[in-house]
Every structure is written in structure tokens, then in C-alpha cells.
Design a protein around this nucleic acid. Sequence first.
DNA 1: TTGATATAGTTCGCTGCGTAACTATTCCCC
DNA 2: GGGGAATAGTTACGCAGCGAACTATATCAA
Lengths: 174, 174
Amino acid sequence: MHLSHFEDRINAVCERHPDLPRQAVILTRLIRFLSGAIDDRLSRLLEREGLGGSAWAVLTMIYSDRDGAARPSCIGQALSQSRAHMTRISDDLVTAGLVERVANAVDRRAVDLRLTAEGERRVQALLPQVGGLYQEMLGIIDPAGLDQLETTLRSLLGHIEHLPPIDPTTGTSA
Amino acid sequence: MHLSHFEDRINAVCERHPDLPRQAVILTRLIRFLSGAIDDRLSRLLEREGLGGSAWAVLTMIYSDRDGAARPSCIGQALSQSRAHMTRISDDLVTAGLVERVANAVDRRAVDLRLTAEGERRVQALLPQVGGLYQEMLGIIDPAGLDQLETTLRSLLGHIEHLPPIDPTTGTSA
DNA sequence: TTGATATAGTTCGCTGCGTAACTATTCCCC
DNA sequence: GGGGAATAGTTACGCAGCGAACTATATCAA
């Protein structure tokens, strides 16, 4: 519904600027919409648990660690979020009783985040729901299409991440 | 780089919870990463112009209108942003001299946003750069792959948008 | 006509997240 | 071993964005 409306506008602009890469514009819109729609649904599912998307991501980062511990800075790096934000999320999760801060013996600057028993219980209770949500959203694509999509998105992401960074003064990627 | 690290974690969790849809989890990660990477690059390009992503989106919404005018509430709806935020962005764009507010004669509640001459000049100067950016990011995929990707993402988005909304109290989509 | 309801825009207060500055620790090299 | 650079976490402050409340207008029903 949104998209068709957008498409009219993209077409109108592309008429006036024939050198614009119309398909690339549409694809970026699609990716943005998809990402937003996925996050929206996940957020609404987590809302009932009093969790935000970031908090859930932190919980799963800890849970997915083989040793059951993770340091805020590592999590932030993996999630592309600032250390300051990790401090806040950690505060919230600690006061919610889902996470505890454990001083790291070998590096006294560092803190290990660990799930409490309650935190682990909550993660294990939520994981199937989140998995079901993802499956519900992506399940209409047939397996071959999913494989195709995965390889395409992987190469796309790899390419973009290896692109030279954009110089903010010139606006070019050289 | 990020992704492989993530993949290890996803695999670790999927070992403990064999019923999780591993591929769906990976695909949602990919889409999120891609969307973030695209937005990042666009933001850095716009940064030099003193424009935020929202401001640029508003400018293009006005520019892409056949009559060269758009109302804040329509723009906000199309961009999935609140009316309050559209007021703020409009304020900024007006003080930047890129947009003017014109009272709508037929509906006196409404305001039409129009590009100033300077605003139109800026949009026309930026459009090729933004188009080049998109092309640079998506251009490594061959045309057949792009078509394939487009149809897949279209059906995915259509499916998700037609999914029943999630009830925040039960967490289910019924 | 008039009264109820819906809608456009604005304002206000809140949340989420980032950058910069600070302290404590670790690392590295002389 | 001692001093500078890097790093972990925290704190303070700023920006982007949303929801709710408010005003003015429009629409629809009795």
C-alpha cells in the first residue's frame, strides 16, 4: 500500500532525471521498509514483556555466548551501539533482575554481564516466540527463494561493507 | 565481518533450540544490517549538506509531487513518521530557506509545503549524488539478480504488511 | 442549523541513542 | 620500571523521534 504510492513518486522523479538508477532506488526503499516492518513486529511482541529491541538484543548476545557472559563494549560493537547506551540498557536490565554485573578478575576495567536465573528463563521463554515471528514473516518464500535471497543479501552486505567510507567533506566515496 | 561473528552466535543458540528457524533469523539480520548500512552511507553524504535523513526525505517527497506541494501529515504518513516530527522538520527546512509554508485555500486546516528556488536547486544538485550512491551499493548484483531480488522483496513486504497486527497483550498475531 | 466526530497542525514531555569528557586500568615501548 | 597511548565503563548533554493534549477547521447526522 505504501510502496505503490512511493513508486509513483519515484517514477515522477525518474521522468525528470532519466539518469537516476530507478531500480536501485526502489530496492533501497524495499529494504528500508522491510527492515522497519520486521523491527516493528518484533518491538510489538517484546512490548508486552517490558523489553525494548535493544534490551532483547543484549539479552540474546549474552545468552548466545558459549560462556554465558559478555562485556558491554563487545555487545555494543556487535550491535552498532554506543558504550554509553550499553551502560543504560545494562542498568535497566539489572534493575529488572534479568542481568547481573560481575567484575572481571583478569581485566579490572571490564565488567561481565551474566543472565540471572530469571533472565535465562525469560530468554528461553521468548526465543520460540521470536523464532515463530521470523518464520511467519519469511515463511511465504519457498526454500529455493530463501537460499537465493540469502546469497544475494550476503554478497550485497559484503560489498557495501568493503566500499570505501564516504568522505564527509567531498561526499564521494573515494 | 560483523555477520560471521553473529552467525557463530546464531548457530550456538540454534544448537540449544533446534526448533528455531535458523535461516529466517539470519535473513532478518541481513536485512537489518543492509538497511543500516544504506542509511549510514546516505546520512554521511547528506551530512555535508547539513541535512538529516528525514529532512532529505521530506524534500524529495515535495519534489516528487506532480504539483510541487505536499502536506505535512501526508508526508509523515508516507514516511511512517509522526505529525509532530514533521512540524519540527518543516521548521528546520523553513529556517534553512529550502521550504515555505503556504496556507491551503480549500482546507484552512492544512498547510502546503513547497520548495523555494534554493530548495529545488539543492534537490536537483543532490539527486544525482544520491542516485550514484545507490547504484554504487547495488550495482555489483547482476541485472537478473536485481530483478529476482526485487520480486522477492516485493512479495515479502506485501506479505508482512498483510499479516494481522500483533496483539500487544497476547504477543500473538491472531 | 446545530451538535458530534474526525482531521491538520502545533506544543509539550518522554524515550532512545549518540558524542564528548572523565576516571580507572591495561598495554607497550624506552 | 616508568610514562604515554589505548581501552572499559560511566556521566553529562544534545538530537531525533513519538504520543498525548490542544486549537482550529471540516464533515456528517439529526
